[in-house]
Design a protein around this nucleic acid. Structure first.
Lengths: 328, 328
DNA sequence: GTGAAAGCGCTAACAG
DNA sequence: CTGTTAGCGCTTTCAC
């Protein structure tokens, strides 16, 4: 059995109530002398507080739960860094739960875990929940915000980039560069993110009276393989002269397959990637990208979560930028 | 206030003991009829168990704590996937805590958090603890194993690759290819991993009567920037004809800087990378690599942790392989 | 300033 | 098969 406040109390010759008060830095209703004695004894005995007991009695927890999908994408680390730093500053702990890749059971398990621990709040990263799991979450009083995705439900809070504008901006950039036949790689038409970016693309093309061929748009799920496949569909003499990839990973897939086709990037095919993680700087040519503010997304997410107590949930769109590199 | 077994008991017209028994799938000392009624009532009421209460009374937890350093490296995901799958199969939850990059405070906070929650076991990923933090861990009865690193202390359990052999094997592969002036990039001489790989390299060189120049060995911490810097040190007419990089990230750094120097890879400079994550297949030319069994490391780690109850902690070395690609 | 005592929600003997 | 009861370690009134 580990050492409890009872042990500390006995060793210090005081009551457990007093020990509890000084260890929890409660009020200042105790003399400095007792406080010091208790602290010393506690340290000597190797006392560690039992969070289960604390949370049981206080009915609240100082931990934030983050649910991530296993890396289809590679930007989660940045968001988590933002979350971690902000939480740390507010003296909260962060626990991260992987929810697999489109695995409803794992997703459920992760949600269940955070609910049962009645965490202070839940952050859902780049993940779309199925109806059952959403319901599970909504049943609880635990505040939750979606990051880099939306739940698709008005009442939910989320922090993300404006995906419509991202699609629009990337497309317009290429149009301004003189491209007219612009393709899309790894478009996930079933997700809100994918739909919005696609809409932004269509909007930009329409605004410039540019027609779109259906074969220009290749479906996928943001992965490297999807980029590869998209380019393979277009073939060695592609019908397009530029492409917007829906993720850095997909962009690299497009790039590698295009290079294998001996296409010159950017002369024969320009590439713009969406995300702007370090990966775009590791490949050659370096990829022009829409760079999202992932770290800030983590920061904003935590703040939003903590404000949910006092304010109604809100949506927040973060600015992004376009970084020009060698691929366009 | 959320719904408790008391509420369920009242609604179902039984005692809380019975509710507890059926909800915990205890024994089968209750009639199917009561069981069913209770399950229905619980679902209708939206009952969620309170882990804090359960853990407080049972004095044990069904969660595994994983402590990771923020990604200096990019293989943590694979290890975590292995951990997650194994834990899931055993009906354990996994919580992941980021410990920053060489940030003692964050590291401490992470350890503190898992200790206070008295998790079932702790997995430490590619992280070396400072003395204070090690002591903190050793004071507790919670079993812990190091993954992809060792604590440097005999009595601790760990799962890793044999880093001496990795250094040796990579070097010998290059020697057999006819290289004689072999450099090392991003060597972290302060870490056990770094030291062992370095020793393996020296051993291989010595076995073939090959001299080593000190400038061939460039220090670093496994990062992309370290690879870049190493190659910059060697310059456009490098004193070496082959290099072993201590991580995939570092290898890509070397590769990019070498390419910028207009060096032909592998003719003027061969590169072997250590890790073998997907990144080596994303760059061009693809990198020959020592490929570590990261997923298996996660699996083995969990199993080792769970056996600690019955067996003394042990060390485990996992096999690795050499995958030849275009960079050598 | 400090102590006594009443639980938080749940499990686990022990009766019946 | 089911109910009663005694805590797990801690916080928090309420007295003194």
């Amino acid at each position: 059995m580990s050492v409890t406040i009872k042990d500390v109390a006995a060793a210090a010759g005081v009551s457990i109530a007093t020990v509890s008060r000084v260890l929890a830095h409660k009020d200042r209703f105790y003399s400095p002398a007792t406080a010091e004695k208790i602290m010393t004894v506690a340290r000597d005995l190797g006392y560690q507080k039992n969070s289960a007991a604390v949370e049981l009695v206080t009915q609240k927890s100082q931990v934030l739960g983050v649910i991530v999908s296993s890396t289809q994408t590679n930007f989660a680390d940045q968001i988590i860094a933002g979350i971690q730093d902000t939480a740390f500053a507010r003296d909260l702990s962060v626990i991260i739960l992987y929810a697999g890749v489109n695995d409803d059971r794992l997703q459920q398990k992760a949600i269940q875990t955070v609910i049962e621990r009645s965490v202070r709040g839940i952050l859902i990263l780049a993940l779309e929940l199925n109806d059952a799991n959403r319901q599970l979450l909504d049943q609880t009083p635990i505040p939750h915000v979606f990051l880099s995705t939306t739940s698709g439900h008005e009442q939910d809070a989320f922090v993300a980039s404006d995906d419509f504008k991202i699609g629009q901006r990337a497309t317009e950039y290429l149009i301004n560069k003189g491209h007219t036949r612009i393709g899309l790689a790894a478009v996930e038409a079933t997700s809100y993110v994918g739909q919005k970016r696609l809409a932004g693309y269509r909007n930009a093309m329409a605004n410039h009276q540019l027609p779109i061929e259906s074969e220009w748009i290749q479906a996928g799920h943001f992965t490297y393989a999807d980029g590869l496949v998209a380019m393979r569909q277009w073939g060695p003499t592609p019908p397009i002269d530029a492409v917007v990839a829906m993720s850095d990973l997909a962009a690299v897939g497009v790039l590698n397959q295009a290079t294998d086709f001996h296409l010159n990037i950017p002369n024969q095919l320009a590439i713009v990637s969406i995300d702007g993680t370090d990966l775009v700087k590791w490949v050659r040519p370096q990829l022009t990208s829409i760079t999202q503010a992932f770290y800030d997304m983590g920061v904003a997410g935590v703040n939003l979560l903590l404000n949910t107590d006092t304010q109604p949930p809100a949506a927040q769109l973060l600015p992004f930028k376009l970084d020009e590199r060698a691929s366009s």
